[in-house]
């Protein structure tokens, strides 16, 4: 990509300029305030919300709830997805027999699980965690399963020759192959965990950033909408960004074949 021999035009000032112009336009330009509100209107509302406006829990608690549900779902989905992925890779009968059902579940557009889960588990925190965990599980499981199934056959043969059994195969070969896939899919998993929570909150949950957002949508409150949407966007970007950063760090320090090289 860096094939232009000429000195690079500094883009950062330009980008900052663009952001500034957009911000200024938002405040002073021809903008539908019913949709986007204005920074000057939002700022007082933000302060008001933070400590708990009338009838609403404090904003920081809503943020914590959404964040907490995301992290819980992420952890559960990763753990389960990784373990089952490695085990199923080692026992092909298990994998092949359950394949059609797992694929059927995977084929359902994720958001469709929300009504079902809501009916079973209600409108609370549990549904959010389960929804988030389910989405993460599906992504992690299939990626880990694929990598662990296609673990280097030479190494698997080596385990047999050295006298190891199924457990050795899983622990010394498949697990590491799966780990590579897990690390590679981590940013997607993080992003999806958050989306899962928002999906769950979209159906009139009582609290959480997503609930705030969709309630604002129904009442037509552009300020709350902008605040919650922006917070969600920031959380998403920060979480995914940090994971990507962590990924790069690990990739440099871990032995190869773990860092993974997926791009989806």
């Amino acid at each position: 990509m860096k094939k232009t021999p000429s000195p690079k035009l500094p883009v950062l000032p330009l980008q900052l300029l663009i952001i500034l112009l957009v911000g200024l336009y938002w405040q002073y330009g021809l903008v539908d305030t019913h949709l986007f509100s204005r920074p000057s209107l939002i700022e007082p509302r933000l302060v008001e919300l933070w400590n708990g406006a009338v009838g609403l829990p404090p904003l920081w608690r809503q943020v914590a709830e959404t964040l907490g549900a995301t992290i819980a779902g992420l952890a559960a989905g990763i753990l389960l997805g990784f373990l089952l992925g490695v085990v199923f890779a080692e026992f092909p009968l298990l994998r092949d027999a359950s394949a059609p059902y797992l694929n059927a579940i995977n084929a359902v557009p994720r958001v469709a699980w929300v009504p079902v889960l809501t009916m079973v588990f209600g409108f609370g925190l549990l549904t959010k965690v389960i929804m988030s965990g389910l989405i993460v599980f599906l992504v992690v499981f299939f990626n880990v399963l694929d990598a662990a199934t296609h673990a280097p056959p030479l190494l698997l043969r080596n385990v047999v020759v050295l006298g190891g059994g199924r457990w050795a195969s899983m622990r010394d070969v498949r697990m590491w192959a799966g780990l590579g896939a897990l690390l590679a899919s981590l940013p997607s998993a993080v992003a999806l965990a958050l989306v899962g929570v928002v999906f769950a909150e979209s159906l009139a949950a009582e609290s959480g950033l997503g609930a705030l957002m969709f309630n604002a949508m129904h009442t037509g409150d552009a300020r709350d909408l902008m605040i919650s949407a922006t917070l969600l966007a920031l959380i998403g970007v920060v979480m995914t960004g940090s994971v990507q950063f962590l990924q790069r760090l690990l990739a440099a320090r871990l032995p190869p074949d773990i860092a993974g090289d997926r791009h989806d």
Binding site: L154, L155, R157, N158, V161, D172, W176, L179, P255, D257
Partner: peptide
Amino acid sequence: SYLFQQDTLFPWY
């Protein structure tokens, strides 16, 4: 013991 032609060292150990 069997030593193969290809490299069968475990890259993660």
